[in-house]
Amino acid sequence: MITAEEIREKYVRNHPSPFCPGCGGGMVLNAMSRAVESAGIDKKDVVAVSGIGCAAWIPSPHWRVDTLHTTHGRAVAFASGVKIADRDLEVMVVSGDGDCAGIGGNHLLHGARNNIDLNVIMVNNGLYAMTGGQVAPTTEHDEKTLTTPYGNPASSFEVAEVVKAAGASHVARWTTYHMKELVKEVEKAVDTKGFSFIEVLAQCPTRKGKKEGMTGIEMLEWYKENTSKDQDSEKMYVGTFCDVERPELTEEIYRQIERLGGE
């Protein structure tokens, strides 16, 4: 098993990171580095694409691979371009919930429909944390945020279910409490041919925790108590939603080019 010092030397740059104490962002960085290491991929073949927000700072500039820091919500669109241009690259998209499901929601749906070979990690903290904690599409009903001080009147978005329905090959949900499972799931996503989507519930102790009077550790404990690996349980399900084989976009494009006699 790779040690923390080895990860820091091989996969992390500009340390210490700008994340708040107890933030789940660093834990996602830890999980991704371990997954890439144990999958045996050369980090020169990895490209990480991110949009705007706290979660977008996880790969760019802090992950020591090639990174693209793009416009708000467009990470999946940029990543699709990277993948089609060079299909040997392992393209990772790390995006927050506001970036991925809110502003870039349509790109996410069509990425899943196209079933292009991307690994999308959506770090879900339930609000727009970087701008002060405004309500996001993933904010739970009745939850208080900066812009909904009396509770969120709307309901939240079940992003994993939506992406599954849109046609992604591999969809899963974990939390930062489930670190071991998360590392294995990222490894599985890297191996999957097709659109892989992992929703990671991550604690935000500053914007969300302070509003609810919870620390980062208390939020991790909340994830432990309120999630279940049993699909029939009343608690929130964590685990794999689907793992199916479907035609992959870049492969189909290159096959078409070959059939038409192009190079």
Binding site: M1, T3, A4, E5, I7, R8, V12, H15, P16, S17, F19, G22, C23, G24, G25, G26, M27, L29, N30, R34, M179, K180, V183
Partner: peptide
């Protein structure tokens, strides 16, 4: 068990 190492968000602890 190296759980501290796996959970640390800042790569600050290591068990050898």
């Amino acid at each position: 068990c190296r759980r501290c190492e796996l959970y640390c968000p800042d790569f600050a602890i290591e068990v050898k």
